[in-house]
Design a binder for these strands. Structure first.
Lengths: 346, 346
DNA sequence: CTGTTAGCGCATTCAA
DNA sequence: TTGAATGCGCTAACAG
């Protein structure tokens, strides 16, 4: 069924090990002429390397493992699409895993991928600690932690790729302040994960700098009542509660942990008879495809996913022996102004 | 690094081949007692089968290949999440491929997966013909064609899983008729793919049965100006054009090829100063997560994704030697009534 | 009912 | 600079 290096070797008049050397870029061990003869033979015969055999021999698989909370979430779906595209440019495949934000599941996936020989994993995690991966990492696992900034005590060699969350919510808060809002709510699920804490911090700091005082309202779910896909429901619930407050305590603008929650807030506001963008300003985070499609189109903080996905795959492929020069990549967010935010009216 | 069947065999006091037999469910070839001894040894040693070795030996990989247009599209993201979940219950992994609706890319992916030993593929395709896969299928490829109904001349052994598209748009059209609408537009990208043709047919037939005559308007993009992710832009463009028509030719209700397009229609209607659900009824297709979140919440035809994904994975795992008793699974759509459709006012 | 054995395709010593 | 030989972990004859 498949062409083997033996057939290639015979066709090129060399030994199998020479073909193997060509395959593995050990060009120094042969004459350029020999090399080109081998390459030609591979093309003529339509040779394709057998990944299973290579993996059996080396113990390493070439695919990239991708662990996301859930590709059903449009943000992660978009990210997964870009990771796959970036991997494809290197001829690598992507193994898809949905952790559903369950830490046990997340760990089990990484264990499983490791046991299967995968040595390159993009882990989209909100876990504060990566200690449980330290042994694998020192044993050769290339791990990109995505959407999570570097933490003290992280294993060396872990590469963190994330937006600058603090800056992002600062920009969002500032935008609202510039529009004249003085009572602003930050809405989020439980503040357990790193990036949520950071986004919250950006809000708190920007609000403090503007001396908002009690005008800075934090609404965070206590525990994990809301799963990943319930972000919208969370927004709905939060806004329903906030709008019941007496007018002098009621926010005129809302900043959410992500776009899905913002969409929920918009829906909740409408249920309460308010028009988002006019009676209540709403700003999201992520800039998912649907942010632009919502009514009103959602002002949000964009995460440049293309750049992030490409960076992730590049690091995974970097020379394993090379020094990791950039242990952490902090990407700059962008404010995208659309119609869901407007001047303060109250 | 790994425990092998030899170690298990030694621990259980049997030969490696007996362990292999246990692994492969050939229970008939050993005493129950022997079997349990082996199982115990596997647990004690923490044995995990080496997929690469197994694949090298058998030529078959155990992962499932999933080819979707793009997981960045919320519908396909949701589907991918469910396929992965279904595969996980069998301990199988999912290899993710985004075809971006490029037929060449789609074919290249299938070739690649096949060459890598994958023998189970879920192919979400709009291609009318599957002839190019016939040879692989007869050579043992298990292929589930998703979102595509069976066609005359399809290779045997292909399993088609799809909703009943004709019924779906009939239900949608009927819903609009029941609300009193007499000028209804069907909006879609080019009608090249099977399921689009079918959805269109459902609309045409229901409209004809209601003697709508010129009141049944088909708006379909000529060629593929709009890629998968531009569905919303397509809806916007279509509605902008339709609303410019003289009043007696202007639709009072719109039925779209999918929810993303419907969301675009809603946005376009608002741009034109109309309120969806009041001035223009809009009904989508799919029931993606965001349909409920839109404003107004979108009436739509639901595709029961869970059932569809489970069916796909089950068929992939069915006994390869068993007769394929259900070459085609036609799933019943459900009308989900929300606020984007209302009585005809014009 | 259980054990022995011979590769699957490749990478990698070690010799030449 | 190249070649011959070995084994990664497993399955499937086949022999016992």
């Amino acid at each position: 069924m498949g062409v083997t290096i033996y057939q290639v070797a015979r066709a090129a008049g060399v030994s199998p090990s020479t073909v193997s050397n060509v395959l593995n870029g050990r060009d120094g061990r042969m004459l350029p002429e020999t090399r080109s003869r081998v390459v030609r033979a591979m093309q003529d015969l339509g040779y394709r390397p057998n990944h299973a055999a290579r993996q059996l021999r080396t113990g390493r698989a070439s695919a990239i493992g991708l662990v996301v909370p859930s590709v059903a979430n449009p943000f992660w779906g978009a990210f997964a699409q870009r990771v796959e595209a970036a991997a494809l440019t290197h001829g690598q495949h992507v193994l898809l895993c949905n952790s559903e934000r369950d830490p046990d599941r997340e760990r089990a996936y990484v264990d499983e991928l490791w046991a299967e020989g995968l040595r390159a994993i993009v882990l989209c995690t909100s876990l504060p600690s990566l200690d449980h991966l330290a042994d694998k990492i020192s044993a050769g696992l290339r791990l990109v932690a995505f959407d999570r900034t570097a933490q003290l005590g992280d294993p060396d060699q872990v590469i963190n790729i994330s937006i600058d969350n603090v800056l992002g919510t600062k920009m969002a808060t500032q935008h609202l302040l510039d529009l004249g809002h003085r009572r602003i709510a930050f809405i989020s699920g439980s503040l357990g994960s790193i990036n949520r804490k950071e986004r919250h911090r950006g809000f708190v700091e920007a609000a403090a700098a503007a001396k908002l005082g009690d005008g800075a309202i934090t609404w965070a779910a206590d525990d994990d009542d809301f799963a990943d896909l319930d972000a919208a429901a969370l927004g709905r619930a939060a806004v329903a509660e906030l709008l019941q407050r007496p007018e002098e305590l009621r926010p005129t603008a809302v900043l959410t942990i992500n776009d899905m929650t913002a969409l929920g807030v918009c829906a909740g506001a409408r249920t309460a008879g308010l028009t988002p963008g006019r009676d209540l300003s709403v700003i999201g985070f992520d800039d998912i495809l649907l942010a632009e499609l919502a009514w009103p189109p959602l002002t949000t903080i964009r995460q440049p996913l293309d750049a992030m996905a490409t960076a992730a795959v590049d690091y995974l492929r970097a020379d394993p022996d090379g020094a990791v020069t950039a242990p952490s990549v902090l990407i700059r967010p962008e404010l995208v102004t659309r119609d869901s935010t407007g001047p303060a009216t109250a």
